[in-house]
């Protein structure tokens, strides 16, 4: 089966009827008349009301009932004669997706909603209320992300200090191919929130990802440190071996010491370091065989940043 998820679909499972139903209710008693109903529906611009006897729900009466009554002559009578008795109900704790299914199957315009614990009427759900609830939730989720992004992107303006820097580190385990790249994709999201220029994010994500793959493929793991200041993003990638024998050779496109299994996975073609060099504004590499390698990448975000990239 296709694994298809949509954000709205997820919302329909998450949101409960209680969160979107109408709670302020006009209710009727069965002895009130159809002409009173007509006036109330008109004055409150509503399309239906539950009918209660004491606290017990005995029926629901809607604009459709009113029309039927009018076209049959409109002779005044008690609501009890025209209402739908023992109407189908929904429970307040049910997810919206269930309500949608019931609206679809029944063709009804509204359902009374019952509180499962007390068995009493808690509200009424119409298709309009349902739609409104979903839209409101969608909107608030979007606003939340925007607000987060706004806050993060103004952090350097909002905080005062003589020297400002955000310092983020990731521990990258070696040989864990499934997790490989998660530091770089996570960092890409962080940089977006911080409001860094998209071109710099793009180049840094590629450089960081290639460096992360090198850690996973060739070493037993290492640390990636990101330093973000108003002037630059600085990345230091540090491992404890095995180190690079000949850095000059390693920088050449196509030179590789990768094992066959690495190539089978789509890496190890000798392009990693040259890709990093191409993406970085500045790159430095220090390596001692048997000790380890430190790679430093700088992206200038201040006035000297080069929007067309390349070093």
């Amino acid at each position: 089966m296709d694994v298809r998820y949509a954000k709205t679909q997820e919302l329909l499972y998450e949101l409960k009827i209680a969160e979107v139903m109408r709670r302020e209710l006009n209710t009727f008693s069965p002895v009130m008349t159809m002409s009173e109903l007509r006036d109330i529906l008109r004055d409150h611009r509503i399309s239906g009301v539950p009918v209660l006897e004491g606290e017990e729900l005995v029926g629901i009466v809607s604009i459709e009932d009113l029309i039927r009554w009018l076209s049959a002559g409109g002779e005044d009578c008690a609501i009890a004669a025209e209402m739908t008795k023992k109407p189908e109900c929904l429970y307040a704790d049910q997810p919206l997706v269930h309500a949608i299914k019931r609206f679809d199957e029944s063709g009804f315009g509204r359902f009374p909603v019952i509180d499962r614990a007390t068995g009493k009427l808690a509200g009424i759900l119409t298709k309009g209320k349902l739609m409104e609830g979903v839209l409101r939730k969608l909107e608030s989720e979007i606003e939340e992300e925007e607000l987060r992004r706004y806050r993060a992107s103004h952090i350097f303006e909002d905080i005062t200090a003589d020297y400002k820097e955000i310092y983020l580190t990731y521990d990258v385990p070696g040989k864990d191919f499934d997790r490989a790249g998660s530091a770089s994709t996570g960092m890409k999201r962080n940089l977006k929130r911080l409001g860094i220029h998209p071109d710099i994010i793009h180049r840094l994500a590629i450089a960081s990802y290639e460096a992360e793959m090198n850690l996973v493929i060739y070493t037993d793991g290492g640390v990636m440190e990101f330093h973000i200041s108003p002037q630059e993003v600085f990345l230091r990638v540090k491992d404890n071996g095995p180190g690079i024998e000949d850095i000059e050779k390693a920088m050449q496109t196509g030179y590789s010491t990768a094992a066959h299994w690495v190539r089978e996975l789509g890496f190890g073609a000798g392009m990693g370091l040259s890709n990093i060099n191409k993406c970085a504004d500045k790159m430095e590499i220090d390596s001692t065989p048997g000790i380890g390698t430190t790679l430093k990448i700088r992206m200038f975000t201040g006035p000297q940043h080069k929007p067309d990239g390349g070093a």
Binding site: D178, A180, G181, S184, H202, L265
Partner: peptide, 17 residues
């Protein structure tokens, strides 16, 4: 388009856009 079926194809797509 690729014949590879590992997590890195998705990571690559995410990193590169």
């Amino acid at each position: 388009l690729t014949r590879l079926n590992n997590t890195q194809v998705v990571r690559t797509a995410s990193v590169f856009g």
